[in-house]
Design a binder for these strands. Sequence first.
RNA 1: GGGCCUGUAGCUCAGUCGGUCAGAGCGCACGCCUGAUAAGCGUGAGGUCGGCCGUUCAAAUCGGCCCAGGCCCA
Length: 953
Amino acid sequence: MADYKDTLNLPHTEFPMRGNLPKREPEFLARWAKLDLYGKLRKLARKEGRPVFELHDGPPYANGEIHIGHAVNKVLKDFIVKSKWLSGFDAPYIPGWDCHGLPIELQVEKTFGKPGVDLTPAEFRAQCRKYAASQVEAQKQDFLRLGVLGDWQRPYLTMDFHYEADIVRALGRIIERGHLHKGSKPVHWCVDCGSALAEAEVEYEDKTSPAIDVRFTVLDEEALMARCHHVEGHEGNGPVSVVIWTTTPWTLPANQAVAVNPNLEYAVVQCDGVGDHVPERLILAEALLADAMNRWDVQDYHVVAYCKGADLEGLKVQHPFYEREVPIILGEHVTTEAGTGAVHTAPGHGQEDFTVGNRYRLKVDNPVGPDGRFLPDTPLFAGMSVFTANDEIIDVLKARNQLVHAESIRHSYPHCWRHKTPIIFRATPQWFISMDQQGLRDAALREVGRTRWLPEWGEARIRAMLENRPDWCISRQRTWGVPIPLFVHKETGKLHPRTAELVEQVAQRIEQGGVDAWFELDPAELLGPEAPDYDKITDTLDVWFDSGVSHYAVLHRREGVAHYPVANLYLEGSDQHRGWFQSSLLTAVAMYDRAPYRSVLTHGFTVDARGQKMSKSRGNVVAPQKVVDRLGADILRLWVAATDYRAEMAVSDEILKRTADAYRRIRNTARYLLANLNGFDPRKHAVAPADLLDLDRWILEKTRRLQERIVLAYADYEFHVIYQELHNFCAVELGSFYLDIIKDRQYTTQRDSRARRSAQTALYHVAEALVRWLAPILSFTAEDIWQFLPGKRNESVLLNTWHDLPTVFADAGQADRALADWDRIIEVRDAVNKELEALRVAGGIGSSLDAEVDLHCGREILDLLETLGDELRFVLITSDVRLYLVDTPPPEAQHYTLSSNDEIWVAVAPSPHPKCIRCWHHRPDVGANPKHPELCGRCVENVEGPGETRQHA
RNA sequence: GGGCCUGUAGCUCAGUCGGUCAGAGCGCACGCCUGAUAAGCGUGAGGUCGGCCGUUCAAAUCGGCCCAGGCCCA
């Protein structure tokens, strides 16, 4: 049997079928690094004068390994940046890190001990700086490994000296514009440390505390009773008191109000013998009435009136031992979990009290000193330690007949992690950025309206937060942070009159020597002889302020960008509505009266297959490093692309496996394109659009239209749409139709025939387009493909823009008609396939080429199919097709109605003819040429004649 | 407890203003091919559209309640 294999044009490529990504991706990373791809792109952009699109990076915190959420965030940004490059933009990307703050301090403390105790603050800061740098380096390696393109040589770090200096300058500008406010706020306070504690330094342990019920006597009984609904018409008798319950009697000297829940039902209860008290009326939440009476051991009581908590607002009550009238206020934080439903409120001693107190403009009184003792001017309790004062206060209450009941309880209470001693809440002086004193809130809300929020609900979210948020407390009492470099007059408490100038001088010093330049500064250097009159503030800034001014320290500073710091896009997780989006907005509005971004895009959090959050304790964490090592970064990237990131993003082994399946399909499709482009030189062999076969025009038009959708989807950040389109294109249009059909033409026609070159021309354009579509997402794989594509090309796919696909139809109308015709042909093919399958199951055939088809058609569909002539058999991949105008279709023919309402009857049968060993079609003319007894006529012509011609497929 | 959001086949996603049997690809099952072969092709089976109650001639699509989950607060 003669072998005709070498007369065929079989596909061939060195492009490997398997990606072997974990091993090969690092090779591409090395290429890109050597090439300085990012630098080259920037240079190219400048040369071409491209418009800038700036995605400004939100800095991750420089502590710990990156988790999958970091990966998602950076990969999404990378999709956008790369797609912008391909769309012809100059898309700089400067990655950043957030480097100051408590978590790093805690890490450093673990190793080196406490600042000011085990090492000097300056030494401590040096260690923090070193630690942060090491974390940045480690995270950078992981981000790089994901294939994220950016200026990794020069990232921004909030601890860079110039960044630190700009933080100070930003603060200076905000102060100049009148937003700074000095106030006080309760913080966790350890009386043994004599200092504030951060949330992370607080441990909860059981503690025994007094629990007391205290009378706050209502001053205007009539006003109260007027607000109530009375029971049985009588009002009861005796004094009226609201009863509060507290486990911290020592906070009573600072009391400024009594809070009730506006939605709860309150009862006025006639009690004629609580202890040995005279007849009286007590107010407490109805839901807690039975509990309280039980606690107080009172059997004899009855309700004389009811009211809603909201009805009590504004009534005045008498402080139990001071000459002080305090109001009843409303607070949702008041619950019926314990107590009386009335909460004594001391804004200086509790977070919630502070918040609700702000609303009512209550005084933030703090009679307790740093050592936990009442200040000397505190009546009754001066000098006493708060915990020993508890008993004293109970005695005073008793003596004044204001104590209803006292007992002890055991409950969970915050303790200092160092001393293991109970801590207190104590108001301390702090610095705030005022939301309202210079209209910051309103201006910020206005800017929210001028920003595009994606998804749209982001606007409602941040708006609600801004409307309700309190002033921004920007001061911290920490070591590793940027100083609030202010001088405050010892007598007047006022800022130095030359503050603006001084801040700039400090900034310049910090620019040279980092934050230590302030901490080590002798005030006399700046203030001269005035120095003794001023306090040098040693507070540090909230780290949210650090990252919040990146629009100034990064965008504003970078050359080549417009002078105002407005980024095209910020992109972070949806938690940043409270975090960075807000801190950036507030600082930018405070400094410039405008938002730092035009658009804000958010993504959801990663969850497991069941939609539950990831945590070590649940054991459902997916580590990006593991995914990269096992499957490759491109698989991780493809998963990110495939998932609609606006909601939660589910990851699991199965999901990643499916992603890897999809990857393989895409990769193999690309591989097959390359394999069929073997020997194709686009400059020499490309067929002019007018000379292309119909089927090749079809795929080119399909490709052109798909590209339009893909480019649009990139512009809209709809990556999951791209994934679906791309995958379907590979599987459906290409895999099961176009590529399957052109195999015959590719393999059997002559190497340089128009038939074959036409298909290669189409394949070439498809490949050129596809590799670019892939590049932002499957960056490694696209680069891999790029190296194998025929024709002269530059070093990286990213150095190009979307492929300019040829127009193959005269106009859109003609293209529409052609595509619609092919849709009908595909439906005919589907019908034929069903019949072939039936025949195959019945054992009549194996390959579809073993069969012949008889098609009985209505007039219109017949006309359409006839235009393909003999080439219809290639479209159906059968050995022969016979067309009939429907008359009386044979009984074995199956009837089909197309969606166009065309009707066809399909009959298939095994071909009676011998099989051509070269093209595998069964033809009557096999063996007609004695020189080639096993070949069909067309193959003979292709082997040693002029070669067959094709028009359509 | 509050604000914002999510819930369509095993997986990832479509389902425009409520109206032809709820779609696609993958996966799965079965078959074919062996000239894309740790590939490719064909056929097929999978869904109470989270649940309940309403509005409507008609709801995955509108309203209410509930359940599950997420982010941010309390």
